[in-house]
Amino acid sequence: MLEINGVTAAYGLVRALSEVTLTVEEGSITAILGANGAGKTTLLRTISGLVRASAGTITAFGEDITALPTDRIARLGVAHVPEGGGVIPELTVEENLRLGALWRTDRADRAAAMGEVLELFPPLAPRRTKAAGTLSGGERQMLAIGRGLMGRPRLLLLDEPSLGLAPMVSAKIMGVLRSLRADTGLTVLLVEQNARSALSISDRGFVLALGRVVAADSADALLADDQLRHAYLGF
């Protein structure tokens, strides 16, 4: 589904990713964990082409996407929900959602997707015509994920969806991801600082430190590894 092979990326002279290799299986939820500055966000931005890999290859759905422009990667079915959600506050809730499906030609299915997203995130429905800037933090994150789902992605990249949210709201969002995977077989690559909550819904996890993969295992094994948890995950 997604194969990252020896990817190195840098901002100027600062190397953010060093020879990162990992795979994401179809229909799985995979967590990327690690401290602030470990390279988690850069990894997602490199996958979606916002940051260029200086070495290595990225393959999605069997196609080499390493050098593709970001909009092309999105239209292949990679939905990237950036840190903070990237909701456009000036646009209405509905416009933000429509934006996520604009590239798809199937009009009827775009409408269907809108219905499904509003069902998935009930708080959004009554606010359809309101500016997205008026939403609460949790609602914004729902809108951001909803916009990602509007394109019926094959791969969903989520950057810190629980950042700054109350534990209850964040648990609700994790619950939605879990049921989405169960119902639709959606593949998710989830970046989280809150390792415990991420691993609770993940199949596998990769731990990054200073731009390198320092651990890769099943979510259960990572949760059980006390040394690793203390060293890298802070719980």
């Binding site: 000036e90 934006l99 604009l102």
Partner: peptide, 24 residues
């Protein structure tokens, strides 16, 4: 119009526009 929505998204946040597949 869809074109108008693309234009506005590009104006407000080009990076997000790219991420939703808009040819910025």
């Amino acid at each position: 119009t869809p074109l108008g929505l693309r234009l506005r998204a590009t104006a407000f946040n080009p990076e997000v526009a790219k991420l939703v597949g808009v040819r910025v």
